[in-house]
Amino acid sequence: MSDDFLRKPFSLAPAPAADEATTSNYTSGASKFSSGPVSPYLNYDSRYLQRAQPEFIFPEGANKQRGRFELAFSQIGTSVMIGGGIGGLAGVYNGFKATNALNQTGKLRRTQLLNHIMKQGSGTANSLGTLAVLYSACGVLLQYARGEDDHVNTIIAGSATGLLYKSTAGLRRCALGGAVGLGISSLYCLYLLAQERGNSSSPKFL
C-alpha cells in the first residue's frame, strides 16, 4: 500500500472544471457522480482511519497494559516449573551416580532414584520459587509505590530480592546476594534496552 494519498491535499470539492470540460465526452457518468449528493458515510477522509498506533478495545476499568501483579503468578509458576525440571534432572544424575557407587539394583535402585529426583527437584523448585515470590512481591510493591513500571523497578526489585534472600546469613553474604541480584537485573535490563534499540516496537515482557 502506498501512502500517495497522504501527500496530496484532500479536498471535498468535485473535480476541476477544466478536466470536466475536456473529458466530458466519455466521463459523463463520473462527472454526474461527483456533482450529485454523496452519502456522508462515503464522503470521509480516509486519512482519519490511518493511525500509527493500533487500537484495542479494553474492558471497562481494566488497565491498558498488564502490570506486575498480573504477570507475577505466571513468573512464579514458570520459575517453580523450571526449578523442578532442573532439580529433577540433577536428581536423576546424582541418583544414578549414588546407586552405581553402592551397587544397588532392582527395586532398591528404583526407589532410591525416585527419592533423589523428588528431593532435588522439590528443593530446587522451592528455592527458585521463593526467589520469584520475593522478586514479584518487591516489584509489585515498587510499582504501587512509584506509580510506574520501568527498568528502575526491575533493578531495585532484583537487588532487594538478593538482599532479602541472604538477609539471615550474615552481613557479607547479604551484601553478596544483593550484588548478585543487582548484577543479574542490570544485565537483564541491558538486554531489554538493546532489544528495544533493535526494534522500537518490541513488546515488554517483565
Partner: peptide
C-alpha cells in the same frame, strides 16, 4: 483467567505464592 495450557503455569505460581506467604 488465562487460556488453558497457560493456566497451568498461572495456577502453579498462584498456589506457590499463596503457600509461601500463608
Amino acid at each position: 483467567r488465562e487460556p488453558c495450557p497457560y493456566r497451568i503455569v498461572d495456577d502453579c505460581g498462584g498456589a506457590f505464592a499463596m503457600g509461601c506467604i500463608g
